[in-house]
Design a protein around this nucleic acid. Structure first.
Lengths: 205, 205
DNA sequence: TGCCGTGTGACAGAAACTGTCAGCATCTGC
DNA sequence: GCAGATGCTGACAGTTTCTGTCACACGGCA
């Protein structure tokens, strides 16, 4: 019985596992090819040949070639939002955000070479950067909803949208600044420093 | 001689005028078709047929179909940056931004139906929204450079990038909030209100 | 074992691009 | 005012991304 308890969730069926594995293989093969020769120089044919599936199958896993960037950039935004939602509403928002980041982003961010590769891909490929910004924009909406639950309950209110946008902005900016310096320094430290800037007014009255 | 003085810049040659006219015709035809039947349902063939040029010519004016959205959204970001750069460095940044907006965006924003059509297009078309966010991201970099000239001179510094990002964020958010309410109210007022929020800390310490 | 649902491959086709080249209009120097 | 240089245009062929469709096979279930 121990083996069942230890198994990371009893297998959800052979077919489902096979499916998940194919998905991972596609994402991983794409990542390697993108990093080797660039996004534009990598065709769908290249990717599916490496995994040995048909081109048609690729589009059953990823609606477009661009959507691969979302899979590659998955580092735990979902768990961040969950963690933030569970923080007490009385706590200072900055503290809640920091704690939520600790339990979601900090671990994946420790693999600095991986983070750097990903940011490098975004840096070199405008179309991927655009797709990623759209993803950030989507996350901003989700974050605004979580914040609204702590404040006035209006996820479409200007103030909540601004706060959510500022948090996403701080994270993105910190990653960008970290990427543009050569030190293999702690990514999270850059993010916390950027977030702290938001406790002072960004515009003088 | 008066006629020469009154002419809005002596004509830059027949060829150049013809070229500019074709560009405008393409953008205008595309806008009308997009608003009528949507972005995806409009093909390059549809657009070039309306203007009577070859498909190949279209791509000599716009690198991609998506880039049309940049032409349609052109409302004076260039003049905004110019106006802001000319404000005295001693002035409060909020004041400088407000004045610069008055001299650049306010006029085009008065055509509320046009603004609403454009935002509607962005709302309905994820790929255009992504392209537009990338444009905003680019403008953020330019804005950071202008702001840096007033402060510490570092256009890649975290603080300057955050301030620039927050201003762009406030504008985008204000437009979004305005779009989501039904009143045909003053667009600029929404933007000024959002900018004013930036004079208070977005996160409590 | 045998049926059912779902994932897969193969094919055809639309649409967005890109390279190339010859023809024509505009511009420039004389 | 003219001849050559420059640059825009259309036509064509080709690649790549993405979509609809259908028959087939494999795993899940009784």
């Amino acid at each position: 019985m121990d083996t069942v308890l230890l198994a990371s969730v009893p297998p959800p069926g052979l077919a489902a596992r096979k499916k998940e594995r194919t998905r991972q293989q596609l994402a991983q093969a794409a990542a390697q090819l993108f990093y080797e020769r660039g996004y534009d120089a990598t065709t769908i044919d290249d990717i599916v040949t490496a995994v040995d599936v048909s081109p048609r199958t690729f589009f059953r896993y990823f609606p477009t070639k661009e959507d691969l960037v979302v899979a590659l950039g998955q580092t735990g935004m979902g768990s961040f939002l969950d963690a933030l939602a569970e923080r007490p509403a009385g706590e200072a928002l900055l503290t809640s955000v920091e704690r939520a980041i600790q339990n979601s982003f900090e671990l994946p961010w420790q693999d600095t070479t991986r983070v750097r590769s990903f940011l490098s891909l975004l840096h070199d490929t405008p179309v991927l950067r655009a797709r990623w910004l759209e993803e950030s924009n989507h996350n901003r909406g989700l974050l605004a909803a979580v914040i609204a639950a702590r404040t006035d309950g209006d996820p479409s209110g200007t103030r909540n949208l601004l706060i959510a946008g500022a948090i996403v902005l701080a994270i993105d900016t910190a990653l960008q600044v970290w990427f543009n310096q050569d030190d293999e320094d702690n990514v999270a430290a850059f993010v916390y420093r950027a977030l702290a800037e938001l406790t002072t007014p960004l515009l003088s009255p």
